[in-house]
Structure formats: structure tokens, C-alpha cells
């Protein structure tokens, strides 16, 4: 862990204003899209800042997670424009297809499901952000295809 974090810090810069950039990069290298205790400790050591500050910062921002998530993170927008345009139905469909509730991870560790605030895709409501892609104008069949494609991608890897 320390070597992995060191490489990232070397690349981004060893100053405390780079903390967020470093945390994002460290999380990106995690298979389960989160910042483990060990990685937070390594960042704190590398930048010579307190673990409290590193942990507090990581906890503050909704795009960083200190809890293990799925290999693919599914973030369904629940702000008003999406919520009022079938957003509730979209949440139900994801829960039904994946067989998990909001905040949970599928048994195979492939997907985790969470709600998020506005992702700036209100013109394509209802919308979801999966990993770094935004998918809009969601319908049941579209959701089904997106998930099937992601699953297929996994078996080909």
C-alpha cells in the first residue's frame, strides 16, 4: 500500500493542497472504489499531515468512500428534477435487477448501489452515473442493457 501511495504522491506532488487529487487517484486504483484504512494512513504519512485531517476530508466528500463498494459504482440521482421524472421507479428497477438495496453491494462484488445529489444531467432525467459515465433518459430496458453490457465486459476481461 505504501509503495502504491508513494508512486501517486510522487506523480501528483508532495504538498498538502494536493490531498484531494491524491485521494481521488488512490481511490481510482482500488478495485473496490474506496479508501481503505491502510491507504488513508499511507497518505497521511506521505504528506506528513494528520490521519484525522485525511480521514475527515475523505469522509466529507460524497465522491470519496471510506467503505468498500462494488467494482462498478452505480449512483442514481435523487435530486428533484430526476426524482420527479421517474427517478423513484429507476431506483426500484436497479434494486430489483441487482437484488440489493440502496447502500449495498451485490454478492459477486460487481455492483454497488447508492443515491447521489444532482449529477448535472437534468436535461436527460432520470439519470445515473456508473463509474465515470453518465447514462440518461433511463427506461427499464435501457437499465437492463447497461447492466448486461457491464457484466459482459467483466467476463471478457
Amino acid at each position: 500500500m505504501i509503495t502504491k501511495v508513494e508512486t501517486i504522491v510522487e506523480k501528483i506532488g508532495r504538498s498538502d493542497d494536493k490531498l484531494l487529487e491524491i485521494l481521488i487517484a488512490v481511490q481510482d486504483t482500488s478495485e473496490f472504489n474506496y479508501l481503505s484504512q491502510a491507504s488513508l494512513r499511507a497518505v497521511s504519512q506521505a504528506l506528513d499531515i494528520s490521519l484525522t485531517r485525511v480521514y475527515g476530508t475523505a469522509e466529507f466528500y460524497s465522491m470519496l468512500s471510506t467503505k468498500k463498494r462494488g467494482k462498478h459504482v452505480i449512483q442514481v440521482c435523487n435530486s428533484a428534477p430526476c426524482h420527479l421524472q421517474n427517478g423513484k421507479e429507476v431506483i426500484r428497477i436497479f434494486q430489483e435487477i441487482l437484488g440489493i438495496h440502496m447502500g449495498e453491494i451485490t454478492e459477486d462484488g460487481l455492483f454497488s448501489l447508492e443515491t447521489v445529489s444532482c449529477i448535472g444531467a437534468c436535461d436527460q432525467a432520470p439519470a445515473v452515473r456508473i463509474d465515470k459515465e453518465v447514462y440518461g433518459n433511463l427506461t427499464r430496458s435501457k437499465i437492463f442493457n447497461i447492466l448486461a453490457d457491464l457484466k459482459r465486459g467483466e467476463t471478457h476481461d
Binding site: 428534477p81 444532482c118 437534468c122
Partner: peptide, 11 residues
């Protein structure tokens, strides 16, 4: 940091 729900002009 356009975060206001319903806003996507800066995007």
C-alpha cells in the same frame, strides 16, 4: 463546481 440541481449550463 456547478452543483445546483437543474443547472448544467457550465457543463
Amino acid at each position: 463546481d456547478e452543483g445546483e440541481p437543474g443547472t448544467f449550463k457550465d457543463r
